[in-house]
């Protein structure tokens, strides 16, 4: 019997719309739940993070200045692509997380639905978090929420795809760009997700995905002066949380951790309120 040899995928990083290997040349073995080898994932370095921040920064103003309607459509388009690949995600998650395909399917479908939920927020944020303020004087005064800039995220370990969606969608839907460190133990669906992004209409650099060690990279996320905000929902270790917040103080990074999922506060946490005054006169 001449069984056909499977062509396996090389898992790389996703930075600025491209799929580079880690500049460090390092990889780590991703094992299945049975302990067997699945793939070598890139062990991203702080320099990969640095490159990702540059990509995210250069993409940010264009992404933020796209209309909210346009961003919503681009995000919805990503959901369409995810749906088309759902079988692949189910297989990967099932294999790497050791759960049944049925359970994996539930996670994948939930992730797609959640992505759609976030996509719809793009043109409703201003009405949720904006206001017209009745100041005492002849001024028109209004407050609008605005994307903060470049935001990092450390995704949760459990539910690798859902965790990734919870990290990325709320950050980018408002016009931020992001660098997300995917689940260290189950990074493969993250890279497949990157392939979805690469073939969608999302501008290069809006979302950058790294795989590697949280313990190694989180402090670099925290101290990077060109990252404005950081979602550390994936960091549970109290001393690491404290270290991240301490390092983040250097540029007064907005650092948040969320327990609730599917919550607009996850979006608003990485937005700034801008208040504008103008006189009213003839």
């Amino acid at each position: 019997m001449n069984e056909r040899l499977k062509v396996k995928k090389t898992y790389k990083l996703f930075i600025g719309g491209a799929f580079p290997r880690s500049e460090s040349g390092r990889t780590y073995e991703v094992k299945g739940s049975d302990g067997g080898f699945i793939a070598n994932a890139c062990m991203a370095s702080r320099k990969d993070l640095k490159d990702a921040v540059v990509a995210a920064r250069s993409a940010q103003s264009t992404w933020a200045s796209a209309t909210a309607y346009n961003r919503g459509q681009i995000l919805y388009r990503i959901a369409e692509m995810l749906e088309g690949r759902s079988e692949q995600f189910v297989k990967e998650i099932s294999a790497s997380e050791g759960i049944s395909e049925l359970k994996a399917e539930r996670e994948v479908l939930a992730a797609i639905d959640r992505w759609v939920w976030y996509a719809g927020w793009s043109d409703k944020l201003a009405v949720l978090a904006g206001s017209t303020n009745p100041v005492s004087g002849p001024y028109y005064n209004f407050t609008i929420p605005e994307a903060m800039g470049v935001v990092g995220a450390i995704a949760t370990e459990k539910n690798s795809l859902l965790g990734l969606v919870d990290a990325i969608a709320p950050i980018i839907v408002s016009g931020n760009t992001c660098i997300v460190l995917a689940s260290g133990t189950a990074p493969l669906s993250a890279m497949t997700f990157a392939e979805v992004l690469a073939t969608s209409d999302l501008p290069h650099g809006v979302c950058n995905i790294l795989t590697g060690s949280k313990e190694e990279l989180a402090p670099w996320f925290a101290s990077h002066m060109d990252i404005n905000g950081l979602d550390i929902s994936g960091v549970d270790e109290p001393s690491l949380v404290s270290d991240i917040k301490t390092a983040g103080a250097q540029n007064l990074k907005r650092i948040h951790s969320f327990s609730k999922v599917q919550d607009p506060k996850r979006i608003l946490a990485f937005m700034e309120a801008k208040t504008i005054w103008h006189p009213i006169g003839v």
């Binding site: 002849p138 001024y139 006189p279 009213i280 006169g281 003839v282």
Partner: peptide, 9 residues
């Protein structure tokens, strides 16, 4: 140059 009413008042 224009005159801003609120500022002038």
């Amino acid at each position: 140059p224009g005159v801003d009413q609120v500022g002038a008042e």
